[in-house]
Computed example of a mutant assay.
Amino acid sequence: MESPAPAPALSFPPQTFQKLSPSSYLLRHLQATPPTRPSGRSPSAFREPTVHTNSLSHAHGSAVVRTGDTAVVCGVRAEILSLKYGDGKSQGRVTVLRSNEDEELMNDEEDGGEGELRSRNLIVTNLELGTGCSRDYHPGPPSDFAQTTTSRLHRLILSSTSSLISPSSLRIIHDDEIKAYWVLYIDVLCISLDGNVLDTAWASIIAALRSTRLPRAFWDADSESVLCDPEMKLGLQLGPLCFTASFGVVSTGAEEDGEEQDGSKVVILSDPDEFEEGVCEEAVMICIREGGTIARIEKGGGLLCGMEGLGECVRMARSRYETWEKAVRDAV
C-alpha cells in the first residue's frame, strides 16, 4: 500500500513576509552574520548620489539629485522685492517704516544674517511630492510629511549655524541705503520617493543655489526703480558648504547563548530607505559643515541612541559629507 504523499510545504515569497511582518523581516536580516539589510546594503552603507545642475531652462538655478530610488528636482527662482518707506520715497509692494533698521541689519552679522532673512522673508521654501512618487502618496492637499520636511529644510537654510546664504548677496543698495532685495523661491519636487528625502532635497538645494546666476540689479535714481542688466550675471554669496546625513535606529532584541543581553542590541542604519523608515524606532539627523564641524543635530522617536551611538552617527556623517561635497562640486 502506497504511503500518502506529504503535504506540500506552506511557503511565501520574501515580499509577502515583508508586508505581513515588516519588523520581523528587517530584524531577521540584521541578526544574520554579517548583518545585511533587505536591500543588500550593510547597516553603515549609504546609497551613491548623482547630481546634475542647470536642468531647468526657466529657473535662475536648478539641480536634479538622485540617491538610490529617491530623486528630486530643485529650482531657484528670484524676484525683486522693492521697499516702500514710510516717507513715500520709494515705490514697491511692501511698506517698511523708516528707521535705523536697515543700518542695524547690515551691521549685525553675529547671527549670520538670519535676522535679516527672516524679517524680510527673503527665502521661500517649498517641497512637493509629485504624483506617483510613492505607492503611499495620494494626490490632494500637502501631506503632514511634506509640510514637516519643508519646515525642516527652511530652518536649515535660515539657521545661523549653517550660514548658507549671505543677505549681502540679496541686497540692492544705492548710496549705502537698501532700496530693494532679491527674494529666492526655492521649490523642490520629489519625483521618486524611497526614503530619506531630506538629505536628497537638501543636497539639491545646495547644488541649485551654487548654480544660481542673477542679473546685476541696480537702483535707477531717475525712474526711482530697480533695473537689471541681463548681460551681466552674478552668483550668490554662499557660506561654507554643509550637508546632512540621516540615520534610522532599531533594536534587534538579540540574544547570545540563549540569554538576553543587558539591553537589546541597537543597530544604526545609514540613509534608511522607505521600508526601513517605517520600521525604525528612532531617527537621527546630523548636519556637518565644511571642516567637519557639527552644524545641527536632530533626534527624535526614542532613547535607543545614546552618546556612543551619536558619536558613531557623527563619524559616518563626516564621511558622508566628503561624498556629497565631491558630487556637488563636480556637477557645478
Rank of each mutant, 00 (worst) to 15 (best):
M1H: 13
M1A: 13
E2N: 10
P6Y: 03
A7C: 09
P8M: 12
L10P: 05
L10W: 08
F12R: 09
F12G: 05
P13E: 13
P14K: 07
P14R: 01
T16D: 14
F17I: 07
K19I: 09
H29Y: 06
P35V: 13
T36R: 15
R37A: 13
G40Q: 08
S42N: 00
P43Q: 01
E48M: 02
P49M: 00
P49D: 01
V51K: 01
V51T: 02
L56E: 14
A59M: 08
S62K: 07
R66D: 02
G68N: 08
D69L: 11
V72A: 06
E79F: 12
K84Q: 10
Y85H: 04
G86S: 15
D87I: 00
K89Y: 02
Q91N: 10
V94C: 04
T95Q: 03
V96P: 00
R98V: 10
D102T: 09
L105I: 13
M106K: 06
D111E: 09
G112C: 09
E114A: 15
E114P: 03
G115W: 06
G115K: 13
G115C: 10
N121Q: 13
N126H: 05
N126D: 02
G132Y: 00
S134A: 08
H138Y: 03
G140F: 11
P142G: 05
D144Q: 04
A146H: 05
A146E: 05
T150P: 07
S151H: 14
H154R: 13
L158K: 06
S159G: 09
L164F: 02
P167K: 01
P167A: 05
S168E: 14
K179G: 15
W182I: 12
Y185L: 02
D187V: 10
V188H: 07
V188I: 14
C190H: 07
D194G: 00
G195Y: 06
G195S: 04
V197W: 01
T200G: 08
A201D: 10
A203Q: 11
I206K: 00
A207W: 04
A207Y: 08
A208R: 01
P215G: 00
P215S: 05
P215R: 01
A217C: 03
D220T: 03
D220M: 12
A221W: 03
S223N: 07
P230E: 06
E231V: 12
M232E: 14
L234G: 02
L238H: 10
V250C: 12
V250L: 11
S251Q: 10
E255M: 15
E260P: 02
Q261W: 02
S264A: 07
K265G: 10
V266S: 12
V266Q: 13
P272R: 11
V279L: 11
V279D: 12
C280M: 10
E282P: 11
A283N: 11
I286W: 06
I286N: 01
I288V: 15
R289W: 03
G292F: 09
I294N: 08
I294V: 15
R296K: 14
G300K: 15
L303F: 15
L303P: 10
L303R: 15
G309V: 08
C313P: 12
R315K: 15
A317Y: 02
Y321S: 06
Y321A: 09
E325H: 11
K326D: 01
A327M: 04
A331F: 03
A331G: 05
